[in-house]
Simulated scan of single mutants.
Amino acid sequence: MSIRLPSALPRVLRALLACVFVVGGLVLAVQAPAAAACTCQPADAERQTSRADAVFIGTVDGVTRGDQQLEMAVTATRAYKGTVERSTTVTTATQSTACGIGEPEVGTDLLFIVRGDAPPYVANSCDGTGRLDPDRVAQIEGILGTGQAVQPPPPPTATRTLVEDSPPASLARLAAPGGALALVGLLGLVVVGRLGRRA
């Protein structure tokens, strides 16, 4: 884009103003993407694990994509830090410029280094969440130990009620069937007696 300046201005002044416009445009062009970039600072494994609230291995079972974040349904299999349930959720920003970790494929095993006291936990690209790698796992286990397997919840147990523990049936309930039979028998005798008189 050319900038036309009044010809009455001295040549040096016109040159200076033109430079100001050009440099200002370049500054804006450079600052626009920089302002949208991820601002978290990557750290080594020691610092990543120390500032994390939970560290665990899990399999991505499903991904729900929103406007600002992804929510991953995860089956945790081994925990190194924090109390992690077998079925849990982890969120991350949809954009890498907002420090998102990207959208994993369903079935992918990840090492989660996340923040949050309870699910959904939050993962970002600077905290160390990534694909499961033996060298990376060995590094984490060297810091936090071998961890513990995350067991599935126990199946529900059936409730048994012993007959002896049941309350006894009332006398009226026990006598009702016998009383009904006696009444039917009495009515039968009355009918037979009347038929015999008519004969």
Score class of each variant (00 low, 15 high):
residue 182 A to P: 01
residue 30 V to M: 12
residue 79 A to E: 14
residue 68 Q to M: 13
residue 194 R to A: 10
residue 74 V to C: 07
residue 151 Q to Y: 02
residue 67 D to R: 15
residue 197 R to W: 07
residue 107 G to L: 06
residue 51 R to P: 01
residue 199 A to F: 09
residue 96 S to F: 05
residue 10 P to V: 11
residue 15 A to V: 05
residue 93 A to I: 06
residue 94 T to D: 01
residue 194 R to P: 00
residue 47 R to A: 14
residue 157 T to V: 15
residue 10 P to T: 15
residue 73 A to V: 05
residue 46 E to C: 03
residue 108 T to L: 11
residue 97 T to M: 09
residue 190 V to W: 06
residue 159 T to E: 14
residue 119 P to G: 12
residue 139 Q to I: 00
residue 62 G to R: 15
residue 60 V to E: 13
residue 92 T to R: 09
residue 116 G to I: 10
residue 156 P to Y: 11
residue 38 C to W: 06
residue 172 A to Q: 12
residue 43 A to G: 02
residue 36 A to H: 07
residue 191 V to G: 05
residue 82 G to Q: 11
residue 11 R to C: 09
residue 184 V to Q: 10
residue 158 A to D: 14
residue 133 D to R: 08
residue 197 R to K: 05
residue 142 G to V: 00
residue 164 E to G: 05
residue 99 C to S: 02
residue 144 L to R: 07
residue 91 T to W: 03
residue 170 S to C: 06
residue 15 A to Y: 04
residue 19 C to V: 12
residue 183 L to R: 11
residue 146 T to W: 03
residue 99 C to L: 06
residue 45 A to I: 08
residue 79 A to V: 15
residue 113 I to V: 15
residue 150 V to T: 03
residue 135 D to M: 09
residue 129 T to L: 09
residue 182 A to M: 10
residue 177 P to V: 02
residue 44 D to H: 02
